[in-house]
Every structure is written in C-alpha cells, then in structure tokens.
Simulated assay, not measured.
Amino acid sequence: MKVSIIGATGYTGAELLRLLGGHPEADIRYITSESSAGKSIAEVYPHLQAVQEAKLVSMEALDEVAADSDVLFIALPHGHAMAVGKRLEKTDVKIIDLGADYRFKDTAIYEAWYKVPHTHKDAKAVYGLTEWYREDIRGAKIVGNAGCYTTASIMALAPLVKKGLVELDSLVVDAKSGVSGAGRSLSLNSHFGEMYENLKAYNVGGHRHTPEIEQALGGLAKTSLVLSFTPHLIPMARGILSTCYARLKNGVEAAAVDAAYEEAYAQEYFVRLLGRGGYPATKAVRGSNFCDLGWHVDLRTRRVVALSAIDNLVKGAAGQAVQNMNVLFNLPEKTGLELSPVYP
C-alpha cells in the first residue's frame, strides 16, 4: 500500500512513521510539513533516520500526494482535515483523520464544542474505534480516528452500557494523561517547570472529548446520555489511565459484569483483560497498541469502577490509525502492530 502522512512532524505523525516503518505492507510515499518543508525527517526527529529518507514537502503538493497514495493519514489540528477531505472526495484515496473533524455524526455538535464551522457536512465518514466499529470501517472512504481520552474511556464503559448493566445517568470518567497529548507546540501548561512534581485537572466540564464519549456510549445504549468527564495532566510523556464509575442497576451482580467484559473483548487481540480486581498501569502498555482493562464491583455502594490504560500516542492515536488502515485494506489487524510494551 502506498501511504502518505499530512502533518508528519507532530508527535502523532512521528509515531505513525515509527509504526509504518515496521509495517510489511506499507510503502511510505510522501510526508508533509509546513514548518519543516525541505528538511529530512531525521533533522526533526533523529530517532526516525532509518525509517524515511525522503524530505518533507508542503501540502501545496496535495493533489500529487493523493494521486500517488492508497491511504492518506491526516495528523493536523482540528479544522484542517475537512478541507483536505472535501478536496479529495472524488479521488480513490482513503483518508484516516487523526483529528476531530470526522468523528461526529452530528456536525452541529462538532461546531458547538470546537468553535469552527464544519465545511464537509455531507462526508461519508465513519468513527474509527476499531473494536466497536470494525464493520463500519471496512470499505469506508473516510475514517475519523477516535481520540485518546475517548478510546480509553469508551473501551472501559462500553461493555457495561451495551449490556444495560448500569444506570446511564451515573457515568463519571476521571482520566489522567501524559503531556504528549497536548501536542508538540510550546505551552506554559506543559512546560517542565509547571509539570514537574505536579498533577492538575483542566477543562472540567468542558473538554472536547466529552461529546465524543457520549456519542459512542449513547449509540451503544440506543439513547442519548450525558456524563461527567474530568481530564488531568500528569508529569510523564506518554500514557492515559481512565478510571470510570457507574451505578449498577438493581439486581445486577458481579458475575454479569465479568461476563460483559469477556463477551466484548475475549477475542480482541489488542485488549488485555486483567479481570475483576485488576489494576491496569500505563507503563505496562507504553509504546504498544494494547488497551489493558480491569474492573471492580463495589457492592457496598452498588458501583462498578472500570479502569483502562493505553499509550495515548499508539492505541490513542497512531496505532489505532494503523489498525484502522489494516481493516480498510483487509489485512490482519495486528499487522505492523505486534509490538511488546517498552518497560520500564
């Protein structure tokens, strides 16, 4: 497959190059960057010098890039991918957007939360959380890759919601992410002096991943729902730990919770079930496409606490994008992604 990346010099673009460099069916054709056009990727990321020798080019060559690509990854901030998708909608190239532009069925929700007009409202896009939308992804033109917080949180709560085991008005997500999730641009919030020995919440009640989680879980429940989501930054580069709370419906016992997770994920290669009483840890998934899940049933409070750990740059972004590419092109899903976590 001929593969190109639009926006290859952000953290997600660099991670895509690392993964695709080891993919036996991927031929990397073009990598673009507006800020580093003309440079080699090794000048920006020395660790990638053995992966890609071609120089970075500008997006001005988009038509040429698309004509010589089977699949185009877009690793740009929100608001940019829809212009690319609209321009290329009559071409044969498949598009996987790692931003938010194609994640929402209702573009009005996107506009309300992201504060920009959606200019490709009629796009034939599907949501790219592979384990739950695999059949939609097959043969799609555009895939809106799921977000990082959303992947961790939906994976934790989806079995409970789908099986109707929990009260939908009781869902609470408390998630913590490494600073790479904020991107490579300079920011006071991710400055070393601000983050060292520090832990802080941000965007309480207003994080843009909130409606994405609600959309996916509401779809599984076949009704709209509202939940509370609080993100936190922690002083590490990679990883997300999502701790999710829900109140069990009357009569639901721990065995039903166990069965829901087994039914949902027992055959999923990238989901590792730690079982009831399990404690996922970010270091156990670092550098890999795995999602580790554990859950606890608190009969005293009638709550289930579901925990998930992912690498935000892999399963939460680039790894899931490659997983989606494999589905699009009918390849074994784990092709190029059979990476053991990096530990310690």
Rank of each mutant, 00 (worst) to 15 (best):
R18T: 01
V65E: 11
S340C: 05
L16Y: 14
H118M: 05
F73K: 10
G251T: 06
V285T: 08
V179H: 15
P117Y: 09
L19Y: 07
A284L: 07
E43N: 08
I234Q: 00
V3E: 00
N189T: 06
S33A: 06
R272N: 13
G178F: 11
A259W: 01
S170A: 06
E64I: 01
V285W: 07
I142R: 01
K249A: 06
E60R: 14
A50F: 14
V204F: 13
G205A: 03
A266L: 10
K200L: 10
A123F: 10
V84T: 07
F192N: 03
A201M: 06
A318S: 10
A216M: 05
A201H: 10
A67S: 14
A83D: 01
Y279S: 13
F192L: 09
V271N: 08
G128C: 11
S180D: 10
I6T: 00
N189Q: 10
T32H: 01
A317M: 00
A75I: 03
C291A: 08
L273P: 00
K2V: 02
T130D: 09
S228C: 07
K121P: 02
G239I: 04
L273T: 01
Q52A: 07
L225N: 09
K176F: 15
A123H: 14
L331R: 15
L72G: 02
F192K: 07
